[in-house]
Design a binder for these strands. Sequence first.
DNA 1: ACCCTGACAGAAG
DNA 2: TCTTCTGCCAGGG
Length: 100
Amino acid sequence: MTPEFRDAVYQIVGAIPAGTVASYGQVAAMAGWPRHARFVGRLMSTLPEGTALPWHRVIRGDGGLPLAGTPSGELQVRRLAEEGVAVVGNRVPRRCFWVP
DNA sequence: ACCCTGACAGAAG
DNA sequence: TCTTCTGCCAGGG
């Protein structure tokens, strides 16, 4: 876990366009740390509450929402919906994934 | 050093 | 599709 990695992740997450989502693995790979999806997850989990980062656009590779059932999960679904990302059956369709 | 944990991922049945 | 099973790899106890 290096500061470089952290910064890279923050930058990438901040670059995810509204209306699309990216997976943890995708972000990790783009940050130059393949196979470190879990680290991205850890970073997301340690973000301050009022953060400006669009963390809600980072989800699981299979489209599943990791925070389902929790208050944060509700917020995530609400925000995604506002951006036009359909969440059906607690899941986001593949076509909504960010394609750099 | 050993074991368990985790906002994960991909393959297999 | 959905469920289960493995692999992943740095942190912390």
